[in-house]
Structures are given as C-alpha cells and as structure tokens.
C-alpha cells in the first residue's frame, strides 16, 4: 500500500514520453485514449508551445479499451513511434478494436509481430500501471488531469489555464 500514499507527480524521467521544447512551460498530463475530453485536451495542447509529458491513466470500468490502447501506444514506443501512435489513437476514437490497431501499426511501418507481442507483455502492462499508480498518488481521480507548475487541474483546460500557458511561453 505504501506506493499509493500521496506524493507529487514524479519528475520527468527517462521513461516518460516528452514532446516539445525544453524551455517551454511543462505540462504533465494524465489521460486515457478512450476519453473524449482527453482527445479534446490533446487538440488544445497540440497548438501551444508547451513541453508535454503524457502519462497513462486508464480506467477500464469507464472505458473498457483504455488499458489496451495505452498498451498499444507503449508497444509503438518500443519501436520509437509513441507520439505517432498517440496521435493516431486520438485522431479516431471510434476505431479502437484490434484490427484498427493493426491498421495503425501497419501505417506506422511497425513490425507487427513485435507490436502484438509487446502490447500484451507484462513489461508494457507494468509500464502503464506505473503511470496509473503515480497518478493516483498525486490525487488524480478523473481524466484529463494536468499538472502545471505542480498544480493539479482536473478536466479540459479552460481559458484561464490556456492563457497562462500561452503567456508562459512568451
């Protein structure tokens, strides 16, 4: 139980998926590929000059495919294509069955056999669970949840937060 006690979200580490420039404001994001509000947040953040860290927070009782999709993104990451898979998943949340995942993997020129093996592997499941645990510890209860300068923002970022992020970049 010790690993679920309160702690701030972990610092950006080697294992994290990071996008954006080092000098830009840091946004740590806990989200789930089956969550429509997360897709909306992804669109909003995509246009901003921010440094994004994406961590998985799948809640299968709400989104039955969430964990499978997170694992697919991690399997793509093992072939160096995390963000490409991330974008492809958010781009079409109505197509999230296994054949749709294979189609995405093919389009990204992934080694399909390896992708299949990896996305079902213990290591990938543990990688996703580790993100979830760190989110729970940091008080995440809903997706999307963003951490900006250590402060927790639940739900889709509103105008105030977006302006703050734009301001921070200028």
């Amino acid at each position: 139980m010790a690993d679920l006690r309160s702690a701030p979200p972990p610092e950006v580490g080697e294992a994290d998926h990071v996008r954006g420039l080092a000098g830009d404001p840091l946004v740590i994001e806990y989200a789930d590929y089956e969550c429509p509000y997360c897709a909306q947040t992804d669109l909003l953040l995509r246009d901003l000059a921010v440094r994004r860290v994406f961590r998985h927070f799948p809640v299968p009782s709400k989104h039955p495919r969430a964990r499978v999709l997170a694992a697919a993104a991690e399997a793509a990451a093992l072939q160096g294509r995390f963000w490409e898979m991330h974008d492809a998943l958010f781009a079409d949340q109505s197509r999230i069955d296994d054949p749709h995942l294979w189609e995405r993997a093919r389009r990204l020129h992934l080694d399909l056999d390896r992708f299949e093996r990896d996305r079902r592997s213990e290591a990938v499941a543990e990688r996703v669970a580790g993100d979830f645990r760190s989110g729970v510890r940091a008080g995440v209860v809903t997706t999307p949840t963003l951490f900006v300068e250590g402060k927790l923002h639940a739900a889709v970022p509103g105008p105030e937060l977006l302006e703050h992020l734009i301001g921070g970049a200028g």
Binding site: M1, R5, S6, V136, V141, T142
Partner: peptide, 13 residues
C-alpha cells in the same frame, strides 16, 4: 471535488 484515493492510503498508513 473528488477525494483522491491517495488520501485513503495516507490514512491507512
């Protein structure tokens, strides 16, 4: 405001 599950583990500890 939903209480985070972390609070439960803090309390148990």
């Amino acid at each position: 405001e939903i209480p985070g599950a972390n609070l439960i583990f803090d309390a148990l500890e």
